[in-house]
């Protein structure tokens, strides 16, 4: 038998583990944005309300069966059933509904004019991200969204194929993305850091592998990052990378992928101009290194079932290494 002290220690350890599981880059219970904060509070109130109702029901059951196991007056019992079974639940549900609905206007309000605009298109199974600039030029990248700390971001969401859903649990609520329709989502990040966004609507075989990296940083840092992203790719600096750059064009990679500053201008797949600088590969599900590039080039289907990119397993290993080195150099 465990002593009371040992049981207490075990319980505390379990609670600490449970609390630790609530944190992380993709937790709605660890909010880092205004919308997520309201939603987390709503969840807490709903959970506490449900716990109170459940405890009251258990207490009443114990009272009826154990404490006061005697015949009741029928009329009083009927009134008790009506009150406890209909009136009290209606009042509790109404209070929770009113509280939940009162949150909605703030959660669905558009971002103020002048907010940073980000256009995100969901595609099977990655995210096309565009930052329209004031000069009319658009900076395109993939699977990574940078947002300004303490400011609103105006996200314009749509889809190129099926219905997806854009969700950064740490920052706000989710919003569906429809083909042919642009939805608007305002996010107000309040804590700098790296977070993880996901597709929250089943969209096909690799739905669970459709994530993206989110970086919340001060506006000045974001502007520097955006300026870098808007630049064309730098020429490779190593012989292996230079050979990879030539192979990239010779093997036809540029038919689907763009690398700005080179003849590669495909738009079917993700823009790879600065792919080496991203926080992950394969829609933020794999580490960004030469080994992953090589596996992706030769066996993309094994990393993302159903992926549209064809396998280039027929390439000599030396060519694959050169291509991987080139892509890794695209910082």
């Amino acid at each position: 038998m465990c002593s009371p002290a040992a049981r207490s220690r075990t319980l505390l350890a379990a609670l600490a583990l449970g609390a630790a599981a609530c944190r992380g880059p993709q937790s709605a219970l660890d909010p880092a944005g205004r919308g997520a904060d309201r939603i987390a509070t709503l969840f807490t109130i709903m959970a506490v309300g449900a716990a109170v109702v459940w405890l009251a029901m258990v207490a009443l059951t114990v009272f009826a069966v154990r404490v006061h196991a005697a015949p009741r007056v029928e009329r009083r019992t009927a009134l008790f059933i009506l009150g406890g079974g209909a009136l009290v639940p209606t009042v509790v549900l109404t209070a929770l509904l009113v509280y939940g609905l009162a949150l909605l206007p703030e959660l669905v309000a558009p971002a103020p004019a002048g907010s940073l605009r980000v256009a995100v298109t969901g595609e099977q199974w990655w995210w096309r991200v565009r930052y329209p600039g004031p000069d009319g030029r658009t900076v395109e990248l993939a699977n990574e969204v940078h947002l300004p700390l303490g400011q609103a971001a105006d996200l314009r969401l749509d889809s190129a194929d099926v219905i997806h859903s854009f969700w950064i649990p740490s920052l706000g609520g989710k919003l569906d993305m429809f083909p042919g329709r642009t939805s608007r989502l305002a996010l107000w990040p309040t804590r700098a850091g790296r977070y993880r966004g996901v597709c929250a609507e089943y969209c096909g075989a690799s739905h669970a592998l459709m994530a993206f990296a989110v970086v919340v940083e001060p506006r000045a840092a974001l502007d520097r990052w955006l300026a870098h992203q808007s630049e064309p790719a730098r020429p490779p600096t190593t012989p292996l990378g230079a050979r990879g750059a030539a192979l990239f064009l010779a093997d036809g990679c540029g038919a689907c992928h763009a690398v700005r500053g080179t003849p590669a201008a495909g738009t079917l797949g993700p823009d790879l101009t600065h792919v080496g600088s991203r926080h992950g590969l394969g829609a933020a599900t794999l580490p960004n290194d030469a080994g992953t590039f090589a596996r992706w080039i030769t066996h993309p289907e094994s990393l993302k079932p159903g992926v549209h990119m064809p396998a280039f397993g027929m390439l000599p290993p030396a060519d694959v290494r050169a291509l991987a080195a080139y892509l890794e150099e695209l910082q």
Binding site: T90, L97, V98, L101, L104, P105, R184
Partner: peptide, 22 residues
């Protein structure tokens, strides 16, 4: 009838809080 009255009121509550088409 009681259930329907509550449900109807709940449906209507939505437009008490949502004031625009966004």
């Amino acid at each position: 009838s009681a259930l329907s009255a509550v449900a109807t009121a709940y449906s209507a509550l939505t437009v008490v809080f949502i004031r625009d088409c966004h």
